[in-house]
C-alpha cells in the first residue's frame, strides 16, 4: 500500500518530463535547426502562399497532369485530414473490380502493355506523394498529347524529378507527383 503515493507522484513527474519537457525540447531544437521540416516541408509560391507540402500528395485526375497513386483517404482521395489505406483484401471482389476499372481508365488513355502496380493499387497512407518512374513514364504519351509537348522533353522532366535511392541504397526510386506537376504547369499551360 505504501507504493500508492509513489505511483501517483511518478505519474505526475513523468508526465511533466516525457509529456512536457521532452516534446518542448524537441520542438525548440527542431524549429531552430530544421525549421522547414518541422513545419511540414511546406511549398510556398511566389506570393509566399503555402500551397502544399513536399511530403503530402495531392489528387490529380485531369489528363494533362501526371496522376498519382489511387488513394483511399476519408471522403475523397488525398484528403490529408483522413489518412489511411484501402485495407482491401487481395481476394475481395469489390477491390478487384476497382482495380479493373483503374486499369481500364489507364487503357482508355492509351496505355498499352503491362500497367505499373503502383498506379492502380492504393497507397498505405493515401497521401503517398510519389509514384515509381515507370508509372510516370507510362503517362508521358498522354500528357505529351494533351499539352502538345514532345515526349522526350517530358521524359527528361520526369528523369529530372526522379529521386534515386537514398544514399544510393535505401528505399526505391520515385517521382514526386506534386512537384512534377507544379513544374509542368510552369513549363506549359
Amino acid at each position: 500500500m505504501k507504493d500508492i503515493r509513489p505511483a501517483i507522484l511518478m505519474l505526475i513527474v513523468f508526465t511533466i518530463i516525457c509529456g512536457g519537457i521532452y516534446p518542448a525540447v524537441v520542438t525548440g531544437f527542431a524549429n531552430s535547426v530544421f525549421p522547414k521540416q518541422a513545419k511540414g516541408s511546406l511549398i510556398v509560391d511566389k506570393s509566399n502562399r503555402e500551397i502544399g507540402s513536399d511530403l503530402i500528395g495531392q489528387p490529380f485526375s485531369r489528363p494533362q497532369y501526371f496522376w498519382p497513386r489511387p488513394s483511399a483517404t476519408t471522403d475523397f482521395g488525398y484528403n490529408p485530414a483522413g489518412s489511411g489505406g484501402s485495407n482491401a483484401g487481395p481476394t475481395n471482389p469489390d477491390y478487384l473490380k476497382t482495380v479493373m476499372d483503374r486499369v481500364k481508365a489507364l487503357r482508355d488513355t492509351g496505355v498499352i502493355g503491362s500497367v505499373p502496380a503502383d498506379l492502380v493499387q492504393a497507397s498505405a497512407s493515401g497521401l503517398d506523394p510519389d509514384i515509381t518512374p515507370e508509372a510516370a513514364m507510362v503517362q508521358v504519351p498522354r500528357i505529351a498529347g494533351m499539352r502538345g509537348m514532345s515526349e522526350d522533353a517530358l521524359k527528361k522532366l520526369v528523369a529530372d524529378h526522379t529521386e534515386g535511392r537514398q544514399f544510393s541504397i535505401l528505399g526505391a526510386p520515385r517521382v514526386n507527383v506534386l512537384a512534377l506537376n507544379l513544374k509542368l504547369d510552369t513549363v506549359s499551360r
Binding site: R69, G85, S86, N87, A88, P90, T91, Y95, L96, V99, M100, V103, S114, V115, P116, A117, D118, V120, Q121, A122, S123, A124, S125, D128, D130, I131, T132, R165, L170, G171, A172, R174
Partner: peptide, 22 residues
C-alpha cells in the same frame, strides 16, 4: 497477387504500400 496480375498489372503487390520505402 495473381488475381491482380491477370488484369495486366506488372510488379509486386503495391496495395497498401508506399513507393518510397521499396
Amino acid at each position: 497477387n495473381p488475381l491482380v496480375a491477370e488484369l495486366g498489372i506488372r510488379g509486386v503487390n503495391m496495395e497498401g504500400k508506399e513507393v518510397r520505402f521499396g
